[in-house]
């Protein structure tokens, strides 16, 4: 047997607790989940092998189609809107100085400190068709607001609206990136007579492109996994669940129902793997596209 280098032994001593956790709580369950996804298992009795049956079922399950539709609709609106708004806030923050910038940064981040569940409960109230503040505000302009929480056509737009309140992290990341844009660059361009839009387009945006790219990926992944707020709003009790039909059925909500309400563990595992594959494909596409669009400095930071 080959002698194990003492260095290697030490490395594994340091890695051990984490490695055990990785195997027991991450890799093991991943493999188990993949296996379960090929079975029919409802906690009673032992899993029954059904091959690709569960995956075939997802393609035909009308609820899955509905949930995918809702989730994609939400993601397609939430990601561009939230990043555009956060970028606008970050750009404005970057142009003011001193204390005021800190105060605004804090205020913009406050919503992100709020538990998602509380956000959901709060917005169920704010979006209420009769007594909600949103419609009261629209009323000031003579607009009769929709029934955001009960009209199936308006539930998703309402959820998008709620998501736009949570711009904190995205704003903070973009703001930090803007701070790192060397001032000399924009100043040089200014002297050359470049207008504001031109400076933004050809200097600022390329310089922060990796941060923008990063928040696009992060926001897309988390939008696809939307759960907490929607669950607290529309699925917290039986009455709420029935009265909204499937207008607020998000993919992970349906997965949760299959697993922990109907105890279809095999089917839920298949749903989870479909989600995983979709996230992986989207991330890969974004990385591919990103590599073409993102400007990386020749010198990387530490690491």
């Amino acid at each position: 047997m080959r002698r194990i280098r003492p260095e290697t032994r030490w490395a594994y001593v340091f890695l051990l607790p984490w490695l055990i956790g990785l195997v027991v709580f991450q890799l093991g369950p991943m493999v188990a989940s993949l296996v379960l996804s090929f079975t029919d298992f409802d906690l009673i009795g032992s899993p029954e092998f059904v091959g690709l049956g569960n995956y075939a079922k997802t393609a035909q399950d009308p609820k899955v189609l509905r949930a995918v539709g809702n989730t994609v609709y939400y993601t397609a609106l939430h990601v561009p809107l939230s990043i555009a708004l956060a970028l606008a806030l970050a750009l404005m923050l970057n142009r003011i100085t001193g204390r005021a910038a800190g105060v605004f940064r804090t205020i913009f981040y406050l919503p992100s400190m709020t538990p998602y569940v509380a956000v959901g409960v709060l917005f169920l109230f704010l979006l209420n068709g009769q007594a909600g503040m949103v419609n009261q505000f629209l009323g000031l302009f003579g607009i009769e607001g929709p029934q955001w929480t009960t009209d199936p056509d308006w539930i998703l737009p309402g959820i998008v609206l709620m998501s736009l309140w949570n711009l904190g992290s995205t704003t903070i990341i973009l703001f930090a990136a803007l701070r790192n844009v060397p001032r000399e660059l924009t100043e040089a361009a200014m002297i050359d007579g470049a207008g504001r839009w031109q400076r933004f387009r050809s200097i600022t945006l390329p310089m922060i492109s990796s941060a923008v790219f990063f928040v696009v990926i992060i926001n897309t992944i988390s939008a696809l996994q939307m759960f907490d707020q929607v669950y607290a709003m529309f699925f917290g009790n039986q009455i709420a669940q029935q009265s909204h039909g499937d207008a607020a059925l998000f993919y992970v909500v349906y997965l949760f129902q299959q697993a922990f309400q109907f105890l279809h563990m095999g089917y839920a595992s298949a749903l989870a793997w479909v989600l995983f594959l979709v996230i992986m494909v989207i991330t890969l596409i974004q990385v591919k596209v990103g590599n073409r669009l993102v400007y990386y400095e020749a010198e990387e930071h530490a690491g």
Binding site: M30, L275, I279
Partner: peptide, 8 residues
């Protein structure tokens, strides 16, 4: 995603 590991 955590949804993958949660069932097992």
């Amino acid at each position: 995603p955590q949804q993958v590991t949660v069932v097992p």
